[in-house]
Design a protein around this nucleic acid. Structure first.
Lengths: 173, 173
DNA sequence: TGCACTTGTTACTCTGAGGTAACACGTATG
DNA sequence: CATACGTGTTACCTCAGAGTAACAAGTGCA
């Protein structure tokens, strides 16, 4: 519900009805709407980070890691469009608290990417580009998900990794 | 106000107060809060699109266009952080209508980028990568703006254009 | 001076939705 | 059978905030 209609577009009654219960039941498990939303963000975000971390850890060499990392990302998206929309969709409205939660996720993804970037540039420059590559995957995914198109993560991962890897080899201070 | 606190985090009283008037005055100019918000999105978005279009039109050759395009983007961001946050910040909550408005902007930016991509790939693949590059610039900017860091658009544009251009030369079907 | 018009303000209505109090129903336990 | 408890529901309270009605105050024109 949150993924598709946003935080403010989803009432606790909506959530309760979708869960097949009534509102007070929700409040037995979560202190507030915000609390429920945060739990959801954390859950979904951690799944993404875990997938990426595992994928890059299990690959040898920068190029392999790049491909596996993007592959894991796009598999995560393809596997659960709603999860992507919840974190990165345009409906995801955020207050102070959830903004931090999302920032933690993107920063985590960037941290996984940063080491892949040529070492002959400054740390700050590298972090900046790392966040750019996270945005690259996000931009690609948003278009496909919001248009409702299905896609092959294998193909997409390869295509985007090609661009990213070649780009990363070219950067310098 | 909308850029910093989001649509739902900003009341019409807030807007009115910031404008030095009272609420009914706003309703003499705009039919509804939504109407005001949409006018703002359109205004700001068109400024971005115009800047990019002009920049790429005035450049000769793909590489030049790439650099000038990203430069224009980052100049727009550096010049008005709030404008960026309004369209792409994490606080930007969006209903159906504003989502379309934003999509029009990103699609417009992608359209300006798409022709730069090597022609030996399918049109769909090209559009996908174009949206990815828009996301690239967005990801880079979001980090810098939300961290409140100031930056030099000239340097940043060059760095990102280097990555993008090298990446674009490497893509194939 | 007096009337119409523009432009603003104060003070109100009303609805959506978050959150809660009180109550009903099924099930283990003495 | 009766009591206590867990788990759910209905029905309510409350309040922020969008939108409006009624009213004040300055300004051009006869």
């Amino acid at each position: 519900m949150f993924a598709r209609n946003g935080f403010h577009g989803t009432s606790m009654n909506d959530v309760a009805e979708a869960a097949g219960v009534t509102k007070p039941v929700l409040y037995q498990h979560f202190d507030s709407k915000q609390d429920l939303y945060m739990a959801l963000l954390d859950e979904v975000g951690n799944r993404l980070l875990t997938a990426i971390t595992k994928a890059t850890a299990g690959a040898a060499g920068g190029r392999q890691q790049t491909e596996q990392g993007f592959l894991a990302y796009f598999q995560w998206v393809a596997n659960d469009h709603d999860a992507f929309l919840l974190l990165f969709g345009s409906r995801a409205s955020r207050d102070e608290e959830s903004t931090h939660a999302i920032r933690r996720i993107t920063a985590g993804a960037a941290d996984a990417i940063a080491p892949l970037i040529a070492a002959n540039i400054g740390a700050d420059h590298r972090r900046t580009l790392a966040h750019g590559l996270v945005g690259l995957a996000e931009g690609v995914s948003r278009r496909l998900v919001e248009l409702g198109e299905s896609f092959d993560p294998l193909v997409l991962g390869k295509q985007v990794a090609d661009l990213a890897w070649a780009g990363l080899r070219a950067v310098h201070d």
